[in-house]
Simulated assay, not measured.
Amino acid sequence: MNILNQAIYCDSTGSSISTPDDDDHDESYLFTLENRHAYFLFVYFNFFFDCFLGIVSCISRLFKSGIALILYMPRLDYSIFGRSLEKIDNGYTAYTSYLYVEAMHTHPILITFTQIIYMNILDKRRRQKHFLLIDDKQILEQYRRKCLRFRWFLLITLMNNLSLIPTRRHHQKLTINRHNQKINQRTLSDSLVSNGTVTVNMCQ
């Protein structure tokens, strides 16, 4: 529409474009107006025409948005307010919060972890109930079995993960003792060497 209006305007106002072949203008292209009054009238009426086009486009946009709202209103997974105003849509926020809660409560690792903890709690409660009925010998046997089981599990984990061995307290003590033994051996060797030199000097 704008191109058509400009073409009609050029024909009505008698505007012309000068070219480099003209005698007066050799270096640049110039757009000249021969009738400014017609130009001003055209701009004045074109303003009202643009306002009319804006109103028509606004009405068409409202009509299209109303149809889209009617079609997408039953869908909770689509916000009708746009990305920046999703928090205003209560249906969309309820749907997203439901998905979040479902994902949190159906996580397999979380479910297995809570199940293991719950089973351990039940075992502790059963042991506390039967604790009064058990003799001291049975308690000692159970404690020994626990210690043996723990040591076997520790051995298996250390065999599968050799990088954990230096972090053990026993290994650290052994390394410290070996280091101290090396220092003591060096001091003894130095003292023996010094005593040997002294005896040699005395003999001389």
Rank of each mutant, 00 (worst) to 15 (best):
N90K: 13
N160S: 14
F131T: 04
G82E: 03
P108K: 00
H105E: 13
R127T: 06
S84V: 07
R151Q: 15
Q142R: 08
M119K: 09
L69Y: 11
Y95C: 02
N90W: 03
Y98G: 06
Y95K: 04
F150L: 10
S163R: 08
N161Y: 08
A103W: 01
W152K: 14
S163H: 14
Y98H: 07
A103E: 07
Y143S: 14
L162W: 03
D89K: 01
I156N: 02
T114N: 15
R151G: 05
L132W: 11
T112L: 15
I70L: 15
G91L: 03
I80Y: 01
E102R: 13
I116T: 10
K87F: 07
I134H: 03
Q128F: 07
L155F: 09
L122K: 12
M73G: 03
H130W: 08
R125W: 12
Y98V: 09
L76F: 05
K137W: 03
T93R: 07
T106P: 02
M159K: 10
L164E: 02
L132Q: 09
L110V: 06
L69V: 08
N161T: 03
N160T: 10
G91V: 04
K129I: 14
N160D: 15
V101F: 07
I165K: 02
R127K: 14
R125V: 14
K129W: 09
H130C: 08
T112E: 15
V101Q: 10
T106D: 07
L148D: 10
I109D: 08
D123E: 12
F81H: 07
I116V: 09
I116Q: 06
C147I: 15
M159W: 11
I109K: 07
S79P: 01
D89L: 07
P74D: 08
Y92Q: 00
